[in-house]
């Protein structure tokens, strides 16, 4: 690990003030950042410890939603009685991720900003445009079994690894950030950037901007499902995951909010898929058509070709479960 300066910030203003330099990173749980720093994949010159900031609570919002402080741990968020009752897809997604130890440290803000687990991003002996812009992408013709089929570019096919963010995308969450002198809210759908030719720039955050909270809109109701397909039954990243909030009224789909993990460089959501489902009678043919729309632009790279049929089938399974009569 490279040496760094360490500053313990006392409040948000101080944290933002201390984070002006390009070589500076905030540290909260540190479970991903320190892992990457040990490998010198990331080598910040300065860490601003934000653990003493007052960003730990979960509060009801005036509109009936929740404001989740950026330092709320994944464990506390998953166990929160309101989340379990009214936003169960979020609880389920959190519980499907990582291990008990990691969920106790990992925070809401940090989870959104975790980096890809692409093998080539981690391996400093290989080219990677995300780690070293302009060096190339070894994954396209390499071991890409776990990598993306949607939203990729010739420069990067990495996936975003979060489960939590997939559920938040399905729920229509917003991200509250604080910068030098001003704050703003960013819809999660606008928060991440596609790789294009700058895969090292992953979000719309400006240098020094700090995530202070995630806002959930009022409960979406419906049946909520998080289905994660992975190589082992616990403590593994998703090959494909689906977060679903689906309601059926009078035999027709009244609501379909669907987000996908393991497929792209950000938690994926496609309004055309949802539009094709709403107002229709549930059927295998309908679910297959939704899969066609979702996967119209999907591109496999050899090792991950299997994700295309796997996604189609996982979506169909989730929609079948979500629209069954007897639940």
């Amino acid at each position: 690990m490279r040496a760094f300066d360490y500053v313990r910030a006392g409040d948000t203003a101080e944290a933002v003030r201390e984070a002006g330099g390009a070589e500076t990173r905030f540290i909260a749980g540190g479970t991903n950042l320190l892992d990457l720093m040990k490998l010198e994949v990331m080598a910040p010159g300065k860490l601003v410890d934000i653990n003493r900031l007052d960003l730990g609570g979960i509060e009801a919002t005036g509109e009936g939603g929740l404001r989740i402080g950026a330092l709320v741990t994944n464990s506390d968020l998953a166990a929160d009685a309101r989340v379990r009752r009214d936003w169960p897809v979020l609880s389920r997604a959190l519980l499907a991720g990582a291990s008990g130890q990691l969920r106790n440290k990992a925070t809401t803000g940090g989870n959104l900003l975790q980096r890809t687990r692409c093998y080539y991003f981690y391996d400093r002996g290989e080219p990677c445009n995300k780690r070293e812009p302009g060096s190339g992408c070894a994954a396209k013709d390499g071991m890409n079994r776990i990598l993306a089929i949607l939203g990729t570019s010739e420069h990067c096919i990495a996936t975003h690894p979060s489960d939590m963010a997939v559920a938040m995308r399905a729920l229509g969450a917003r991200v509250e950030v604080e910068g030098q002198g001003s704050g703003r809210e960013i819809a999660l759908e606008d928060f991440y950037r596609l790789p294009g030719d700058t895969p090292h720039i992953e979000t719309v955050l400006e240098p020094g901007e700090l995530i202070t909270a995630v806002i959930l809109p009022p409960p979406a109701g419906g049946r909520q499902i998080y289905r994660k397909v992975r190589d082992r039954s616990s403590y593994a990243f998703a090959l494909v995951s689906v977060a679903a909030v689906v309601a059926v009224e009078n035999g027709r789909i009244a609501k379909a909010q669907l987000a996908f993990g393991g497929l792209g460089p950000m938690p994926w959501r496609d309004a055309d898929v949802e539009d094709a489902l709403v107002g229709e009678t549930p059927s295998a043919a309908l679910f297959d058509r939704a899969g066609d729309i979702l996967l119209a632009e999907a591109k496999g790279y050899g090792g991950n070709d299997f994700k295309i049929p796997l996604t189609r089938r996982t979506l169909a399974a989730v929609l079948t479960q979500a629209t069954e009569d007897d639940q």
Partner: peptide, 13 residues
């Protein structure tokens, strides 16, 4: 009182 991985956190924190 909470279990964590002590390898993935800095002592000074």
């Amino acid at each position: 009182g909470r279990r964590i991985n002590s390898c993935l956190t800095l002592a000074c924190m």
